[in-house]
Structure formats: structure tokens, C-alpha cells
Nucleic acid binder design. Structure first.
Lengths: 232, 232
DNA sequence: ATACAAAGCGAACGCTCGCTCTCTTTTTTT
DNA sequence: AAAAAAAGAGAGCGAGCGTTCGCTTTGTAT
């Protein structure tokens, strides 16, 4: 059974790796020529933005706050984005892209094992959001104030992961493994429990719940709810 | 079995009734002498604030937006609150107070019926948030940018309702009705499914899910998860 | 050492913000 | 009808916003 350690060994989600991909995606906007410099400073910018935005909201975070905390000047910041909204879209776009990449490819071995695939989805979702915690809080909390394309992107991403859960459920039902009256509705009920891990993470941590523990308990809860008989 | 109609017949949660109580609580700040005038204008102010804040966030809603949409002048607004933060606290305080009042008093008949009390809690929570939908979205989405006392109030309220769920679960476990490994954790998993109704309400509505339907399916899901055998 | 591009800097701009204050209008009282 | 009290109006204030731009510093190739 896979753990958070295993997950992190399989995926490089370090700040540098993530910012390298942001640089790729926004090469036309970013005016810095040397990739090493660009990635290093992007890392400082994104890290500071996530910290400040998660503390008091992106709208309320001023670019002057950002210059003070990041150590970069106003002019330097605008070499990396052409507007505050672009900065927001850089972060959001990276979150959406990683979700698609990580959750979109379940192990082939689970292709005919809906219960295993459901477990894998829940566990992987939790480990991903744990590893990129500030990114996901940012995407979730700022979603409603995104420019329209950003909102569509976020909603689309959410619908995609919900759809993956629904597919696993439907597969399980058709194999007689699960007893679920309405797979769409059930998937819609499972999603917020996944999101709660990162939205209210400090509460769970205060109670001593680790990601592995949360995964285990959530899986037990969901499997009971969908009528799966558990081994042992 | 109680429905949304029944719920609304039992509780007066009209804008006027809610604003009358805001007036009571903030009588010292509000400079308007005649209650009828004060309540009427408070209703316009709160209604407009909720609409604008839920559309683009409270921070991004300017007082000039508020004057335009409400039809009241800047000077008039400041006869009702002494700062934008006070306006926020008026709304939040009313939400918290109503939650305590409505959820804090389950029917006496359910005192020895944990399964019934759990059903009542879920249903009542859903009906309450449905009836005061914009208020709850506001409290939930703006929570992180509240001044500290506001955040504490919101967190306290959430912990209270989670505690009620946990109590019902613990009662059920001690009577041998539920099979739950950890009541606190289980309550923490149930809460976000309740909140999802109002946070993602438009998604559910698009799918044709009514509050009564959501209540029914959520209850079925939870009862299966906690191991309750259902009649029929 | 020189030349040139890359990167970084921060004062200044136009604008909007929350909030105040004086003045006018409406309502109530006499 | 006059006077007093209550309520509303909206121009104006200083502060702070996102963004720009002319300039300096740093790094590199000759």
C-alpha cells in the first residue's frame, strides 16, 4: 500500500521543478533570458505570493508587500509578469496542469480493479494536495475572484477529478462490487472530503492526523458508504 | 420526515427578521433612531453587500459599488456602520448567532435517538444554509480575511456544529447503533459534505438536485458509512 | 580594460480606495 | 406654520493601489 513517502519519490514537485514549467508555459511574457536566473526568482516570487495570499487573500496582497517579502524590486517583478492577474494565472495554471498529470495516469494494474482505483485516486489526491498544499489552498480560495478564463479552468479541473471518481464508482457498480444509487452524486459527496484535507489542514494537524492517517480513515469511510466489503 | 417547507414554517429567517436582530446587536454603532427605517435600510445594505461580495469578494467590493447598487449615499451608509469591517462583522455575527439558535435545539423527542438526531442535524443544517444561502457563502469564503475576532468566531461556530455531530455519533456508538472507529474524525468528514451544498450549490442545482434530495442522499451515504442498518 | 546586453531598481503617475464633513431634505413635534 | 430633530447626500481628503520608465548595477565576451 502506497504512502506519502512513495508518492514524493515518484513525482518531482519541488518549487524549482514547478517553476521551470511555469517558465516554459509563460516564456513569451517573461523577459528574463537566463533560465537559471528566471527559475530562481520565479521560485521566490511564487513562494512569497502563496504565503501572503494564503494569509490575507490575493486581492489584499499588494505588489509592495510582495517586493518587501521577496526582496525583489517593483521593476524586477514586472520582468516576470505583465500584470498581477498574470501572476495569478501562472500559479493556477501550474496547479491545474499538475493535477491532470498526476491524477490522469492511474497504474495500469488497476484498470480492471475499481476498488483499487478508487483507493488510488483518494490517496493520490490527498498526497498531491499535501505536497503542494499552499498551491491548492490558493487555487481553491481565490477561485471566485479569478478572471473568467481562470474560473473556467478551475471548475474544469474540479469536474475532471470528480469525473474520475465517478468512473471508478460506475465501474465498481457494473461489476457488482459497489452499491451506489447515483454515482455522480456520490462522487460529488466524496470530493469535498478530499478538499477538506487542505482547506482545513491546520485543524486536522492540531488533532494529530497525518496525511497517511487521513487517507486511511477516508478510504474506510468511503468504502463503507459505497457498500464495499473490506478484507480483514 | 421533515422537509424544507416545514423548516421554513418553523423559523422566520426573512431579511427583515435577520436585520432586526442585527440592529439589536449593533444598536450602539447604528446612528439611526427609528427602528423601521433602520431595519429597512439595513436590509438593502446587507442584501447588496451579500450580492456583490459573493460575486467578486468582499475586499474587492468598494463602498462606491455599494452606494450605486443599494441606492444609499456614502453618508447614509456610514450611519449604519463605522467601518467596512464592522459591516462584515454584522453579517458574520448574525450567521453565527442563527446557527447556534437553530442547530442548538434539537427536538426533545430525539434525546435518546442518536440516529434520528444525526438525521435531524444533517437535514436542519442543509435547510438552514439553503434558506440563508448568500449569508453562508459569505461567511465561508470571506473567513480567512476576517479580522482576528471574526476568524475566531467563525472557527468556533464550525467547531460547535462539528461537535454536535460528534456527540450524536458517540451516543450512537455507545448504544451499539453505529460502528465508527473515531467519532471526531468521522464528524470532521461529514462537515465538508454539508458545506458543499452551499459552496458549490450552482453545480448541484445544474444537476437538478434539490435540498430535499441532497439531504436524502447525504443521509443515506452517511448512514451506510457509520454502519447503521436502514429500515426499508 | 572596454563594450554591451541582461537584470534590477525605485520614484512617479493616474486612479480608486475607505472614510469624513458640511450641507440639504424629510419627518416629527409644537 | 414654525422650529427642531433625524436622515440623506455627495464632494473632498489623504493613503495606497497597479503599473511604467529612465536609470544604475551586474555579468560576460572581447
Amino acid at each position: 500500500m502506497s504512502s506519502l513517502r512513495d508518492f514524493r519519490a515518484r513525482h518531482d514537485l519541488s518549487m524549482e521543478a514547478l517553476c521551470a514549467r511555469i517558465l516554459d508555459r509563460h516564456a513569451s511574457t517573461i523577459r528574463i533570458k537566463k533560465p537559471a536566473v528566471a527559475i530562481g526568482n520565479l521560485a521566490r516570487i511564487v513562494e512569497t505570493t502563496l504565503m501572503l495570499a494564503n494569509r490575507k487573500g490575493f486581492q489584499s496582497t499588494s505588489l509592495r508587500d510582495l517586493t518587501e517579502q521577496s526582496g525583489l524590486s517593483m521593476g524586477a517583478l514586472y520582468a516576470y509578469f505583465d500584470s498581477k492577474d498574470t501572476l495569478l494565472m501562472m500559479i493556477l495554471g501550474q496547479v491545474v496542469s499538475v493535477v491532470e498529470e498526476v491524477l490522469g495516469h492511474p497504474p495500469e494494474a488497476l484498470a480492471t480493479d475499481p476498488a483499487g482505483r478508487l483507493r488510488w485516486l483518494l490517496r493520490t489526491h490527498l498526497f498531491l494536495t499535501e505536497t503542494m498544499h499552499p498551491w491548492f489552498v490558493f487555487a481553491y480560495m481565490e477561485a471566485k475572484s479569478f478572471p473568467k478564463d481562470g474560473r473556467d479552468l478551475a471548475v474544469g479541473s474540479e469536474m475532471m477529478t470528480e469525473g474520475m471518481i465517478a468512473d471508478a464508482l460506475a465501474d465498481g457498480v457494473s461489476r457488482g462490487l459497489f452499491a451506489v444509487p447515483d454515482v455522480t452524486m456520490t462522487a460529488a459527496l466524496i470530493k469535498p472530503m478530499l478538499q477538506d484535507w487542505y482547506v482545513k489542514r491546520s485543524k486536522h494537524r492540531r488533532r494529530g492526523i497525518t496525511p497517511d492517517l487521513y487517507a486511511e480513515q477516508l478510504i474506510a469511510f468511503v468504502e463503507a458508504a459505497v457498500g464495499l466489503k473490506r478484507a480483514g
